[in-house]
């Protein structure tokens, strides 16, 4: 199991257990676990509806690609540890990740 600790937009913190080999990105996985996730662009790193702040485990994550950086640049609330969940593949590497979901708007 891959454990991800998620603080939702209302401040509730829960650790979710995602089975290995699920072949989803973190945005899709969170949606599957019934987190509110509008995901306007469907996972193309274009809308930032899945914007999160990484609280722990930044170094476990894959490097940011150009499109994610461009999109984050357009967000007023982006910061140093901002990521888009749709650009993070759920696999054993990210076990123990801790994130805070930021507002969709």
């Amino acid at each position: 199991m891959i454990n991800i600790t998620v603080e939702d937009r209302s401040g509730d913190v829960q650790t979710i257990e995602i089975p290995e080999g699920i072949n989803l990105n973190l945005m899709e996985a969170l949606k599957a676990y019934e987190y509110e996730m509008r995901a306007t662009c469907g996972g193309m790193a274009l809308c930032a509806d899945c914007h999160c702040k990484v609280l722990e485990g930044w170094d476990k994550l894959p490097e940011q690609q150009e499109q994610e950086l461009i999109t984050l640049d357009s967000r007023p609330d982006a910061e140093q540890f901002s990521r888009l969940c749709c650009q993070i593949k759920v696999n054993e590497d990210i076990d123990g990740l801790k994130i805070r979901l930021l507002s969709e708007d």
């Binding site: 306007t40 809308c47 007023p76 708007d105």
Partner: peptide
């Protein structure tokens, strides 16, 4: 003039 793109409502 804040220019941070558009968001659907």
């Amino acid at each position: 003039i804040p220019l941070f793109g558009l968001t659907p409502k």
